[in-house]
Design a protein around this nucleic acid. Structure first.
Lengths: 387, 387
DNA sequence: AAAACTTAGTTTATTGGATAGACAAACTAA
DNA sequence: TTAGTTTGTCTATCCAATAAACTAAGTTTT
């Protein structure tokens, strides 16, 4: 039996977590506020807050306004008690942030990435991370962790099993970084960390069930169910880019036919554009659409309809509160939006449409890097709780 | 803040639940066994067991075999401390069971259903349930609840929002039954309770992530994620019968095009058979296939391939441990199996295939009714825990 | 058969959080 | 000044879990 049995230490951990969460969400607030908010006894709150102060996680910020009696002592979370590194490892770029424990960005760097062999990438990634670490001010807990988002399948041990666009197989990224830096490292799929980023810091704040659709060269998806990232049996779910929307459609290199990403990704857009003689990238197409090029606008609408077909399936399957379109294609929002919405409204079940919102990433191309940092912060809090 | 704060009562509830679960799973066993199994102190176990005995949920069954010392007093759960009613409300049938708290069937009844208007159904359903209740022996807790599976969308209040094949809209089934019988009533979708039935009592025992595909007149699905039924934002998810597998396929009455159930349901099979001159039902087709009719076998294979297309999508999206084909079509297992497996193996992602099993309902047409009873039992245990 | 060992389960004293209620401190209002 | 309010701490008490001692009831060894 693996169940944790209950004892007094468990109670204290639970209540400490409750108090800390109250401070995180409502700061600045007083001990009396916490007691009222949580239902915990005033004495209990005082004792737990003192522990948190002793652990340098909380501090008194001064005297608050009286509401007819003794003035309260206000408390807040010490956001700078530690720092986290978030990395978005793209096929041809490297993006990194250093954040405090509330996710405030302290430093940010980007780099184009040329070689994609694991060794070459390691050679660039190590000093890149070290630079971010060096940018952190002194703090009680130091660098609490490194979170990395990668464009591929990642297992629970942090090994990149397969990253098709970089031609990586079985690269033990977590182990490698952990050995170098000696701090906890969390590796996850780019779409998963993107979903986390938007849920925590972006347009998806507070949403219980959301599907993040990362539309880039391919299509990846991150599933937040019951406010938690859903991972399947093997640790990687949500490969909805390879959800077939045409049973007898184009063959995909994955072995299936008619995969969604063949019709609705940036790649699909670029191929379609090339046929019409547009040889530039997404930027050129965006500029053309902006300049009034109806042919290009039509291409975006076409992609939007294809996106809508897949999103309708997602809505019917998950009945989520929100579907969030992110990554590079979110920049084309204005040219996609109508086509996506019309398609989904026509195709998805009415009952499911009632509660669903079609959203676009608020953090733009930073969804993933912010989510990566958040995974490191979240892991730190979990360690705190069990210590 | 809605969080439950920790106090000693919580601990006791948690540990009592742990002890009870140990007894449920490993009975017969001694207090010493429980202590070793759970890590709880012997004294704690003794005290909690005594409470359970006082509450008539556990009893001592006698002396066990010695392993070199004092003989242990064996304990077991009192399965007959209460009874639950499970109802499978079909479009043209009514199936009901009375089970004890371990899910052992004590009484079972079925009835063809002619009228489908809510009032007519109520008129038949009430005495049907009463008959099952009357079949229950006297017990400490009596009838602990009634669980009902219905072929339609059900909201959290137990109202049947929409049951297309019965033409029901906004029928407050839970309220109606609750008022009549004065005991807790749980209403859920037929596929959801089917999933629960197979997870608890069928082939899906102990599986963490499974997708139950109920293939009947239409296709419904029940999602078990992390050992729990997943419901979306509005309480109804998993309408995967309306997952589109042909973006430009046949129009569906749901408004979408190319819905899976248009190609892979019993309905699809019967329509296909009618074209070829077979006007009987599923039974006739099964008999024909059994007798060696190659044309009919071909039709089953065709349905099997269509099932495989949708299941491949499910596998890619959820990366489940198992996909379970249930309801009426599970009877055609032998004629479907190869086509389904080959299609899934060709179309689903390799990484996802590693851990997935393609299973067929073990309880056959009783998956739903057993799952319905289980929802009532589970709700009883939840009430126990919070009391 | 006696002695030595084992195992089961209870009793007892202790520990450690949470709590209610008393309290002191520090304020407002009149 | 006086009365009332709010904040936060202190104190005594409660209660579940626990370790350790203990009783009970067996088996194994000599």
């Amino acid at each position: 039996m693996k169940t944790t049995t209950g004892d007094q230490a468990l109670i204290k951990r639970m209540n400490t977590a409750i108090v800390l969460e109250a401070i995180l969400r409502e700061a600045p607030l007083s001990r009396a506020n916490i007691s009222e908010l949580t239902g915990l006894n005033k004495a209990t709150v005082s004792s737990l807050v003192q522990d948190l102060i002793d652990n340098q996680l909380v501090r008194e910020t001064g005297i608050g306004a009286s509401s007819g009696g003794r003035k309260p002592v206000m408390l807040e979370f010490v956001a700078t008690a530690g720092y986290a590194v978030g990395i978005d490892l793209g096929v041809n770029y490297l993006r990194g942030v250093l954040t405090d424990l509330l996710g405030t960005v302290v430093a940010e760097r980007t780099l184009p990435l040329i070689g994609v062999q694991p060794e070459e990438v390691f050679g660039i990634l190590r000093p890149f991370i070290q630079g971010l670490i060096d940018a952190a001010p002194g703090s009680a807990f130091g660098i609490v962790g490194i979170g990395v988002g990668v464009p591929g399948l990642v297992d629970r041990q942090g090994t990149v099993l397969y990253a098709p666009n970089m031609d990586w197989r079985d690269v033990p990224l977590r182990d490698a970084l952990n050995r170098t830096f000696g701090i906890p490292v969390m590796i996850d799929n780019e779409a998963n960390v993107g979903a986390i980023g938007e849920m925590k810091y972006g347009i998806g704040r507070g949403v219980s069930n959301l599907v993040y659709v990362s539309v880039g060269i391919g299509i990846g998806t991150g599933l937040i169910l019951h406010k938690e990232l859903y991972k399947g049996a093997s640790g990687f779910s949500g490969e909805m880019g390879h959800l077939s929307i045409e049973a007898n459609g184009k063959p995909c290199r994955c072995g299936n036919q008619g995969c969604w990403e063949l019709y609705a990704s940036e790649q699909a857009l670029l191929e379609r554009a090339a046929e019409a003689g547009y040889t530039g990238g997404l930027d050129e197409l965006l500029a053309a659409a902006e300049a009034g090029d109806e042919a290009v606008r039509g291409m975006f609408a076409e992609i939007g309809r294809a996106l809508g077909v897949g999103i309708s399936n997602i809505v019917n399957v998950f009945n989520p509160n929100a579907v969030l379109i992110g990554n590079r294609m979110s920049r084309a929002r204005v040219w996609l939006e109508d086509a996506v919405r019309e398609t989904v409204e026509r195709r998805a079940l009415n009952f499911h449409l009632r509660n669903v919102h079609l959203l676009y990433a608020e953090l733009g191309e930073r969804s993933a890097v912010m989510g990566a940092a958040e995974t490191a912060i979240a892991a730190f809090f979990v360690r705190l709780r069990s210590a």
